[in-house]
Design a protein around this nucleic acid. Sequence first.
DNA 1: CCTAACGCTGACATCGTTGTCAATGGGGCA
DNA 2: TGCCCCATTGACAACGATGTCAGCGTTAGG
Lengths: 369, 369
Amino acid sequence: MTPLSDAEPTPVETAAGRTDESLPVDARSRARPTMRHVATLAGVGVKTVSRVINGEPNVSAATIERVMRAARSLDYEPDLHAGNLRRADGRTRTLGLLVGSVDNPFAGAVHRAVEDAALARGVAVFASSLDDDPEREQAAVSAFLRRRVDGLILTTASEDQAYLAPELRRGTPVVFVDRQPAGVTSDSVVSDNTAGAALATRHLISHGHRRLAYLGDRHDIRTAQERRRGFLDELGRAGIATGDAPVVEGLHDEETARLATLALFDADEPPTAIFSAQNLVTIGVIRALRELDRHLDVALVGFDDVPLGDLLVPGVTVVAQDPHAIGRLAAERVFARLDGDESPAERIIVPTRLVERGSGELPPRVSAR
Amino acid sequence: MTPLSDAEPTPVETAAGRTDESLPVDARSRARPTMRHVATLAGVGVKTVSRVINGEPNVSAATIERVMRAARSLDYEPDLHAGNLRRADGRTRTLGLLVGSVDNPFAGAVHRAVEDAALARGVAVFASSLDDDPEREQAAVSAFLRRRVDGLILTTASEDQAYLAPELRRGTPVVFVDRQPAGVTSDSVVSDNTAGAALATRHLISHGHRRLAYLGDRHDIRTAQERRRGFLDELGRAGIATGDAPVVEGLHDEETARLATLALFDADEPPTAIFSAQNLVTIGVIRALRELDRHLDVALVGFDDVPLGDLLVPGVTVVAQDPHAIGRLAAERVFARLDGDESPAERIIVPTRLVERGSGELPPRVSAR
DNA sequence: CCTAACGCTGACATCGTTGTCAATGGGGCA
DNA sequence: TGCCCCATTGACAACGATGTCAGCGTTAGG
């Protein structure tokens, strides 16, 4: 805050003794100060400023003090990218994170965990939303790469991520979250989708249900396929004809899920229990059941937790994922790779947990229809 | 994908005719390709590659084709930061966004709106969480500035944002969201906190309540002060002694709010109605009322919407903000400033809306205590 | 037929920083 | 006293891109 007492009001002499009037040293200047400005004001060379800013050794205490004062008085902020251009390690201390949508609670929790891990290492995070659009995915990745992020944490919507192969060959760490990669090998952190879906299904069956419906996401999303498989496999194990079970796919938001549920109960032999394979779908189902006033006699288990699910009536039974752990583990993988871990690509499976809150424990009841 | 048919397998001749073996042109190379690699492979100068990559005019169609093929075969991605160093406009096409926490639904909606506006302009967004920590705020801003973001959209926790003055003088657009700036003048986009809080309070009073409690955020947050003032002013207008009304502040998450609510009902003359001034506080209050089994006879209006608030019993009456509009307007201000808008700093007030769902319409009932 | 103009192209300096290296000077030790 | 060593410091090139400018060949106009 205090301007330098000595050098402030007039052009300053450089170390070489010549007066350089082309460098305004006024702290109120409009231009963004560079290391040269700081060096001139402090009366040292730019390299010395660089040493001080980066805490390198072999600078005298007096010089450090002069440089720091000059930097403060100019409100100097080093240009990380210019430095990065020359720096040996080539790190931008930046990460790219791609999630379904930054306003989805699952994504928010992942994001938060990634941010916390990144903050501890002075790494900033670019976040983008995918909207399950493969083009948007590639555009986002390209935007990240042009900005030379040190690593990527990606939720993908594309059929195949082979387009990342060259980048992987260059050594950029890529960790897939929520969905497994296809066409390319790299670390991934996912929930145990098949087991979780089976667990949900088994839970409903154990409460006497035989007529279960599956409501899920787009079929071309691997994660959705796995959950569907977990559901169908479990039906099979219980000796329930899977051909009869209504399987509705392609639901991607509350509204489509709500309409699909209404349609389900408008048809013959509606289910007595529903397994919804995604948080927004679960919410849509709840809305529909309320509308039909069937929320107290149709059982429901959702995959992925729902905000305030414990406060609804009935409470929403879910197979909860652990998005915070997913984000944390993904960030840890990225940083481990950056720190030189060359071990084979790992698939980290984060267990799910059945949370009984009421909706999943309702007994079957024949429709009064 | 297809390697160049002609130039691929061997070192390539430069335009000057000399063979440059120091530049590996193999698409499978480990090194990240630069414009020089592309230029060498295409047999043109770097400036021509630059022209093609940036879509500048005056390049022959044949040259464009050659360069594009070379760039694709090397999986070349331009280095935005290197270009930015030299580019005249000095724009990184990057924005810094600071919100309360990226996993808060309000922040998620703001973030999403900012991202959508940014995407349309090819701008990437850094997102960070504030956690109402002034040090974290300054660290995040500094991290953004070192990365030379083109603009900032900030939620602040500090007493005073004078530290931003030099940056503002340099012309960096800064838009404050959710909270007004102090000690510095710049654009802001906020909800009408005072009016919204008054509206909520009036609503409770109009349903017969005279004993209202205020549960809110830290008092040193301006937004919280405004909401508190709206509450107290409205009590005053209704002729209710404000001295009697329990005002609990310093609540920052569900748990502290829950405990504060429990304490409130453990004391003499508990309120018949509660105004909770923030979404997490509202949730904590709901949990406490459930625990006490008082959720059907203590009225509640929250400031800021709560996920699934319409599905709870009773539905949660709230004064809803419009986080999407806040984010969109903030981004629009930033881009307008970047496009040269020099008009005086603007304070954009986004109206709030009372959403009646049941909890706010409960009549007063004397405690059975 | 000469010249001006234009389209196309590449050499070079430059952006703000860091790596390399050499120069300086003071202190310790023989 | 003399020499070496080390701490301190700055000049300079380089990172990957773009702005400037000059040079080339071709075409249009007089």
